[in-house]
Design a protein around this nucleic acid. Structure first.
Lengths: 197, 197
DNA sequence: GGATATGCGGATCGCTGATCCGGTAAGCCT
DNA sequence: AGGCTTACCGGATCAGCGATCCGCATATCC
């Protein structure tokens, strides 16, 4: 890649980062190009679609979330690992308002630039879930895609300004549904594992 | 209102109904106007915003959902009434792909045309929830807005093509989190009500 | 039947993402 | 060092969006 091309590419990525943080993923590509002191055509040549731009911007974060799942798998109890990771996932998406719907679309559109990252994320969650299920602390009738969907739904809630204040509370509620033992420390009631169906 | 004005208004509403059913709430207003054999300006005079058009189109359905909550309040057990109504709400939104995000935005934007309908819906849900809580079958640490948010999140899931097949299953999971007794008939295990915090 | 006011819709604006192509200069090779 | 090729740049343009303006047609009333 030519030196000036790389410079422009980096400028665009930096501008996209700040613009998306400020205005969400639906920000005008022209705005990003203007911030980067670059023509719109240049932006679109480097990143042919909005998703391609987001993918380049978020790949690092995606990989970090996947790696974090690996850490938690060895450093925490099956239950804490799962809940902590899910909470981190939801919290992470709030950095990029509106990214949830793109992820939901990318999870099974193999042509999307975000596809592989989303699949990797789902797989990481599925491993943590399987570990919790094997330990008997997560209900057995759900799989990685279910967890992905629930996280996506909670992340979507956090994206809605009117519902965001409830997001943490609602996370606890959904988490208590995933787990067969009590999740929050303020509800100490004993409960035996569910033997569903 | 002049006779031709009313005729056009009705044509627009009919065209909007079919167009939105086919393509979701984000369908182009020009398309709707074309289907109705009407100029775009005419559509926008009758319904100054997309929300105003949706409000006119959905008010009947909204009122039906609110009325149905009243029926269920007297005809079913507190638990069945709440769960059935929530399920109906989620199912209803699938008729209008994408309406969920508009509702979430309208719930606290008093200027939105959908505002009063959404508030009424939330109030209807809150009554059913309060009744279930009084009967000890719904956890006490949630309110009508929480339920509204959870329904919105589940409805959003149903809107995502990749996640929609899981929607029913995920509804059961979330419902089991709201209720303190077992919701689905296929999990007959006895369980005492939660005495949370 | 004529006057008036109401509703209509083509034309236009600013915005979006996408594409084209003439101009520029980076990088290689001698 | 200097010239050449080729990759890259970005202004101009296009189709589509919602919104607005205003001359024209006509429903309604007297």
């Amino acid at each position: 890649m030519r030196a000036d091309a790389k410079k422009n590419r980096d400028h665009v990525l930096a501008a996209a980062g700040t613009a998306i943080t400020e205005q969400g993923v639906d920000v005008s590509l022209r705005d990003i190009a203007r911030r980067a002191d670059v023509g719109l055509a240049t932006l679109l040549r480097h990143f042919p679609t909005r998703e391609a731009l987001l993918e380049a911007l978020l790949r690092t974060s995606f990989d970090e979330m996947t790696a974090r799942a690996g850490e938690l798998e060895t450093s925490s109890s099956p239950e804490d690992a799962l809940v902590t990771w899910l909470r981190d996932c939801v919290a992470w998406t709030t950095e990029y308002r509106g990214v949830t719907v793109l992820m939901a679309a990318a999870i099974e559109d193999a042509g999307s630039a975000l596809h592989v990252s989303c699949v990797a994320l789902r797989a990481a969650g599925a491993r943590l879930l399987a570990r919790a299920q094997a330990a008997g602390v997560a209900r057995a009738d759900i799989d990685g895609t279910d967890v992905f969907a629930l996280v996506a739904a909670l992340a979507w809630l956090s994206d809605q300004p009117s519902l965001a204040p409830r997001a943490d509370h609602l996370f606890d509620i959904v988490a208590s549904a995933i787990l067969t033992s009590v999740a929050s420390s303020d509800a100490p009631g004993e409960r035996r594992p569910r033997t569903r169906s």
